[in-house]
Amino acid sequence: MNQDSSLIEQIVERYDRDVGMLIPMMQDLQAECGYLPTDSLRALAKRLNVPLMRLYAVATFYASFRLAPKGAHEVSLCMGTVCYLKGSAGISQAICKEFKVAPSGTTADRLFTFTAVNCVGACALAPVMVVDGKYYDGVTSESALEILQGLGPAEQAAQADAKEAAE
């Protein structure tokens, strides 16, 4: 809790307490926590003296904000026009079916959070899948499943995350 409030304090100071910078502040908060924890949003609203509703409205309007913890890995599949033309809808279906995950959902074992995004700006390589920031080009249902099956187990990745954070 204490740590949390100092994190909010840091973020707020980073932007000179400027309420106009609410979105960057929330982005930083999400970058730190992986999602937007309810208590942190409350604390941020209080610190900035803005209604909590405003933060909730922002958090639910923009697709990149998450109100629930994410999985150990982040997987985005491009559903932009080009990727769609080249079959990304089928790939999405295959992933959802294989891992029993809904678009913008997280697998039950928290292995990964799956999001369908609109164009990642690498259209020449369509269909594109991005896993933890790494771009995979020309993916097919098979190759996508293979990549995801190769992801390290949730705990391992979490430990790696923790280690990284500690360093």
Partner: peptide, 20 residues
């Protein structure tokens, strides 16, 4: 002066709601 309710979500999912 309260903003106890507001719009949540966007597009066809837009609703009036209280925080969370």
């Amino acid at each position: 002066g309260k903003s106890a309710i507001g719009f949540a979500g966007r597009g066809a999912d837009r609703t009036v709601a209280a925080p969370f």
